[in-house]
Design a protein around this nucleic acid. Structure first.
Length: 704
RNA sequence: GCCAGUUUAGCUCAGUGGUAGAGCAACGGUUUUGUAAACCGUCGGUCGUCGGUUCGAGUCCGACAACUGGCUCCA
């Protein structure tokens, strides 16, 4: 009876999921907390089955902050169902079932899956544990097949688990979302029930407290409160923030920081347009593979040019010229796509072909052309030209490298730019400032020789560490993504030796400089190994803030070369780096990190001078303080109104003004100002000059 | 793009198929005050958009848009 196992395969394999399946060794390394969470997923499945016996389960792994189980079920599980599920879970945990491992044969497992027993409380006649059956087929021959049983619930599972259900100290269901089986949209859509679990209640509560704090620090909320940016989806478009004056302060302070740092490190600044011709991205290799992530091209076509208000004469001239053009270019039939080789200079080709025509005809045509005034009009009316908004700066920088002959003496060449890029992120991906469609990158490309690479790469890392210090980031990690042999020629450029050599260089620098890093295979960029920089905010949430890439492929595609000592032309290596990532994401991160309470050098309003009342003498004493600070480029405002000082202070505090200078008659008479710091309360009265000097030096030194 | 939820004044949010509300902000006054909110008044709305059901729709139904939580994606 029964088909061979392979015939039960009915689901699509997600393409990138080759590495998803954990090996037995990896599973054995599951932490105590991960075991507990994975066990909790089984308990949750048990509870769901008690309520809805038809439920079919797929994957149920532990994840970063908890666990989930994917389930197929007609009933739509909503948060309102959570209490009922949690109540059933409580019963399972109280029963304190043992997680019992049962090793079975493949044949037995197939029989059980067909009877609906796997991922169920009992055999379910007429129901096949279809996802379990599919998972079974993925288990390589020779690898043991095991179940885990806890009470009535039996699941195909390699474990490991905690000893008993009673070991699950504290748990809570958190959310429900949809997910495709194996992440492939051709597969059935499942409900993904998320939960989290901890050893004890205290840890669970701490976790939810952290989430609460993150919610309180949500950059969208604080950005709104502080008037930093504005999302104008209806007019500007979704995912394209408008930076308000106070948010622009943050952007420009970050730019200033980067410009100073990069200048000191020997970078030079360049500026490039936001658009480039299609050819740019054909050469770079981004088209057509990444076209979906780019805004659709702008096409300058014949119709486009004709929409310009041509005079009647111009139109006539152009029409007769078109006829002439058709004679010269018989391959043209009004459509251009693919008729001529890309990049062909049609102007030159036209003159070349015209030279072969009789003199009289040529002279007449030339006369008309001259009357038309501009060859460019002629050409732009005929040649479809596609322009793309740039999604990255590197191609433009490559062209700058190519703009003049380079010698080894010019290297390393470090080109830096605040490039504004546009990426057509899927609508569902957009998220506040963290995921946007228009972004400003703290970008630079370092062109260097192989010998220089290690030093350059080390210097880039040092710059990261320096920034971490400025922002008080204590925890970071660099994720070093390398290639996998199997992907060569497909996912990765087919340069086996270059890959190994570059990865080795990178690895050595990371090790030598004592950088905290982890290595992950098969996640590199198309053209070279990549390093994602992860940082943790003040409340312990992880953010991927920047990416570093080594590129040994694209410079060659652009034909970039330098002349080496031996007079030979060589292709430089290129390091892409953006330590502050995009301003959008970095500022989003900083808002959470500082909870909007920025250090003095970053604060949108650094100082506010508050008078106790609007007495003329007092205002006359306060005004020059404002003027002097302003003259020193301090962002300062004055509040000299007759409102009660309590109200004025409350206003300044809610606006998160960093330093408040409170001035009453007492201060005036002593030549003092009373200092109050946001969130820290009054700091006492000090001589005016002393306070001003202190403010200026704190800003200059970017003190925390 | 897919699944689900949300959308009411500048902001935070009430609103039971039957006359659109509050607090804060803004604006106009009054108040002359020592470290987180003094008082009075005024203004503010196509209830996301479009369509449907109904005598009547902020409320019920549908489509679209945007946002949010996930999925996929993130060179």
């Amino acid at each position: 009876m029964g088909n061979p196992p392979g015939n039960d395969r009915q689901f699509m394999e997600a393409e990138s999921n080759g590495s998803e399946r954990k090996s037995l060794e990896q599973r054995a390394q599951m932490t105590e907390l991960e075991r507990l969470r994975h066990s909790c997923a089984h308990v949750m499945a048990t509870a769901i089955l008690r309520l809805w016996p038809d439920a079919q389960f797929a994957y149920g792994p532990p994840v970063e902050n908890g666990f989930y189980y994917d389930v197929e079920l007609d009933h739509r599980i909503a948060p309102e169902d959570f209490p009922a599920i949690e109540a059933e879970m409580k019963r399972e945990i109280k029963a304190n079932h043992v997680f019992e491992k049962v090793v079975v044969t493949r044949d037995q497992a197939i029989i059980d899956a067909r009877s609906g027993r796997l991922g169920g409380l009992s055999e379910r006649p007429g129901q096949v544990s279809k996802f379990k059956l599919d998972l079974l087929n993925q288990i390589p021959e020779g690898e043991p097949i095991s179940y885990y049983r806890s009470g009535d619930f039996v699941d195909l599972c390699a474990g490991p688990h905690v000893m008993r259900t009673g070991n699950i100290g504290a748990y809570r269901l958190t959310s429900v979302a949809s997910a495709y089986y194996k992440g492939d949209e051709r597969n059935p859509q499942l409900q993904r029930i998320y939960g989290t679990a901890f050893k004890n209640k205290t840890q669970l509560e701490e976790y939810f407290k952290m989430l609460e704090e993150a919610k309180r620090r949500d950059h969208r909320k604080i950005g709104q409160e502080m008037g930093l940016f504005f999302m104008d989806a209806e007019y500007t478009g979704p995912g394209m923030p408008l930076w308000l004056p106070k948010g622009t302060v943050l952007v420009e302070e970050l730019e200033k920081l980067a410009k100073e740092t990069e200048f000191a490190a020997g970078y030079v600044r360049v500026r490039t347009p936001h658009l480039a011709k299609e050819r740019m991205y054909l050469t770079s290799g981004h088209l057509p593979y990444y076209a979906e992530s780019m805004f659709p091209p702008m096409e300058l076509r014949a119709e486009g040019a004709q929409q310009r208000q041509l005079t009647e004469t111009e139109t006539q001239l152009q029409t007769s010229q078109f006829d002439y053009f058709r004679q010269i270019f018989p391959e043209w039939d009004g459509e251009w796509c693919g008729k001529f080789p890309p990049g062909m200079d049609l102007g030159k080709e036209l003159s070349r072909r015209m030279q072969k025509r009789p003199d009289s005809e040529r002279q007449e045509a030339e006369g008309k052309l001259q009357k038309l005034g501009e060859m460019s009009l002629f050409r732009s009316a005929l040649v479809p030209e596609r322009y793309y908004l740039k999604a990255m700066n590197c191609p433009h920088h490559h062209r700058i490298f190519a703009a003049e002959p380079r010698s080894y003496r010019d290297l390393p060449l470090r080109l830096a730019e605040y490039g504004c890029c546009y990426r057509y992120e899927q609508s569902g991906e957009l998220f506040g400032l963290m995921r946007v469609r228009s972004l400003n990158m703290n970008d630079a490309h370092i062109y260097c020789t192989e010998e220089q690479f290690a030093d350059e790469f080390r210097a880039v890392n040092d710059m990261y560490l320096k920034y971490f210090k400025v922002f008080g980031l204590e925890k970071y990690q660099m994720r070093f993504s390398t290639h996998a042999k199997a992907g060569l020629g497909k996912k990765y450029v087919d340069e086996p030796e270059l890959w190994l050599k570059t990865e080795d260089l990178v690895r050595r620098v990371l090790q030598e400089s004592g950088i905290n890093y982890v290595e992950v295979t098969n996640e590199a960029a198309f053209y070279g190994p990549k390093i994602d920089v992860q940082v943790w905010s003040a409340i312990g949430r992880e953010f991927t803030i920047a990416t570093n890439q080594v590129d040994f492929a694209v410079p060659a595609r652009f034909g970039l070369v330098y002349k080496d000592r031996d007079n030979a032309l060589k292709t430089p290596l290129c390091i892409h780096r953006a330590p502050l990532g995009t301003h959008e994401r970095f500022i989003g991160f900083l808002i959470e990190h500082y909870a909007g309470n920025f250090p003095l050098w970053l604060a949108p309003e650094q100082v506010r001078v508050l008078t106790l009342n609007d007495d003329t003498a007092l205002v006359d004493y306060a005004k020059p303080i404002v003027t002097e600070l302003r003259a020193n480029m301090v962002r300062v405002e004055g509040d000299f109104s007759a409102n009660p000082i309590k109200a004025k202070i409350a206003d300044a505090e809610t606006s998160r003004v960093h330093t408040m200078l409170v001035i009453g008659a007492r201060d005036m008479e002593a030549g003092n100002v009373s200092v109050r710091l946001h969130g820290k309360g009054p700091q006492g009265a000090k001589p005016k000059g002393e306070v001003l000097a202190e403010i200026l030096s704190a800003i200059r030194e970017r003190r925390a």
